[in-house]
Design a binder for these strands. Structure first.
Lengths: 331, 331
DNA sequence: GTGGATTTCTACAACGATTGACCTCCGCTG
DNA sequence: CAGCGGAGGTCAATCGTTGTAGAAATCCAC
């Protein structure tokens, strides 16, 4: 049923080794032989057996992408980009949903899919970087996101402090005085973005009101909606909100709409991620827009470089971003 | 570096095969031996090598999911569900983005990843079912979506004709008379949903106006927005729109908002898919909501059943759905 | 305590592709 | 004509796991 290397060899009238040589771009092969072999491959629709090859070579050309959840727009868009970037290089991406569970994350790192995978791009949610050290799998690892890599791993991430600073400063520049933040919760992401937010307030000479910092329980629309309700219930509600991701912002906008408040007139809203939903929402969402294609391409390139054995010091790449000003702040 | 079966065997003081037997739940093994082996496995952190196992067994416990694009919310949510459903059964899903290109779709079918994959769940966009026949890979295939499987394959899909009929009838029941349809274009999806739409109009005694059927160029937000602009430019614009998926609907809502029209007062809008965005948009989107978890679970179960070698006649499962009435029609 | 059945475990050979060592042609050059 | 290098072939070993067949250990009844 499945055609093997030897079938191709027989049809082309050459040895198995020669076929293998053709496939692996061995130097000394006549054009004629190469043609014959390639014709036979095409005629039989031969595809090398990935298992056998990977078993022998110790390389599979598969990499894993471990994400908290692929159902969220940001991760879905990112996954799509990474998948594309890998395909351009002849690499297949295997996506792993960790659901943010520490156990699942650990499993990904430990198991590494039973040697099938050459390396991993990991967007951790639960696992602390310290733990990563111990979970040394011996396989290359590129980290995405806020968690500092501590010089132990390669990493690709937006400068979240600066980006948050810019987002907040944008609200300040609109003349807003009570600027809330949603998403300051437990994660590294929350901590880092809060840092930029606070710095911006300080630099603008605005007071820091703890009541305006909401942690919420997650980073999805319902969390944003709930946090916004809390904010509106305050004796002195905010006139602007910086949400630490777009889903939170969209949830917040929902609450504002329900409350009959006008955006941005009553409350201005800024998000983070620039997912497509935000560009079509009413009102359209002002947001920090990281260059996802850049991110994907560089993460993949970095990983492949490492897989190829380039043992330089670990690199820490900073993803370019822009502040996209849309209706939710610019009426 | 990587621990092998033989390492475990050495540590446990048994033969390699015995360890393998323990792992594969072979019947005749003493409790004592099993314990010893399991202790050794745990101590060494052994994980079986997927490549070797799959090479020997001819089964990998990997399945592929071929989607047009994983960046779109519907496919992202579906992919997440399928991934979860597979994981529950100890199966890993490999996601393939075909980008709707015929070549890529063909490649998925032909190549089948060099024997690595046990079967495939395929959501075709370009490839006609007739072509599928010829591309017989010898591996189990479950189809998703509108394209009729023609008794050749297993298939899981919503009854799109009926669902579209229901959606359209809902608009009729609101007293709307000029009900447009967006997304009638070239694909099977478009054709099938149009069928239900037309039938509903006919049964309601409403005239069928070709000007109200827009094909557009795709199924994303910009396409919906553009189509809606066309509709508004008509001498007699519609008072309701049935969009063949939620992204189109969200695009249409965007255009309506820009035009200063009220939804649903001026124009009522219904979508199809029930992606999360629609539940948080302003206004929230009335839509056909297929049970995605049911879909995922049954698609995976069907495929695994087929992989296990159950050669019954091919089954055609119908996914349950509901019409979720929200603000875009219920003010 | 012997024969035979049964259980428990072990050697060995695959699965398919790759790689290395070594050999054979052939055509050229000097 | 000796010698060289390019193009290709042969053979065997290897990757880690599992199916097959058989050896060894255990059990039971007489």
């Amino acid at each position: 049923m499945a055609t093997r290397l030897s079938d191709v060899a027989a049809r082309a009238g050459v040895s198995v080794k020669t076929v293998s040589n053709v496939i692996n771009d061995y130097p000394h092969i006549t054009a004629r032989t190469r043609e014959k072999v390639e014709a036979a491959i095409a005629a039989l629709g031969y595809r090398p057996n990935v298992s056998a090859r990977s078993l022998r070579k110790g390389r599979s050309d598969f990499i894993a992408l471990a994400l908290p959840e692929m159902g969220s727009p940001y991760f879905a868009e990112l996954g799509a980009e990474i998948s594309r970037a890998a395909k351009r290089r002849g690499i297949t991406v295997l996506i792993d949903q960790t659901e943010g569970e520490p156990a699942a994350e650990q499993l990904v790192l430990d198991g590494m899919r039973g040697q099938l995978i050459d390396g991993i791009i990991f967007s951790p949610l639960a696992t602390a970087p310290a733990k990563l050290t111990s979970a040394d799998t011996g396989k290359p690892l590129v980290l995405l996101g806020e968690r500092p890599a501590g010089g132990q791993f390669d990493r690709v991430a937006v400068d979240s402090v600066q980006a948050s600073y810019d987002a907040t400063t944008h609200l300040v520049s609109l003349g807003r005085h009570r600027i809330a933040a949603i998403g300051v919760g437990g994660t590294s992401t929350g901590a880092v973005r809060r840092k930029g937010y606070r710095k911006a307030l300080k630099d603008a000479g605005l007071p820091h009101d703890p009541a305006l910092e909401l942690a919420g329980t997650g980073y999805h629309r319902p969390d944003g909606a709930a946090s916004m309700r809390e904010l509106l219930a305050l004796p002195e509600p905010p006139d602007a909100v910086f949400c630490f991701n777009d889903l939170l912002a969209l949830g917040a906008l929902r609450t504002l709409a329900d409350a009959g408040l006008r955006v941005p007139d009553d409350v201005a809203v800024v998000g983070f991620d620039d997912i497509e939903d935000g560009r079509y929402h009413s009102p359209t969402l002002t947001t920090i827009s990281p260059d996802k294609e850049w991110l994907a391409d560089n993460a993949v390139a970095l990983l492949l470089d490492r897989i190829a054995g380039n043992d330089d010091t670990h690199r820490d790449l900073t993803v370019p971003y822009t502040l996209e000003i849309r209706e939710s702040t610019a009426g």
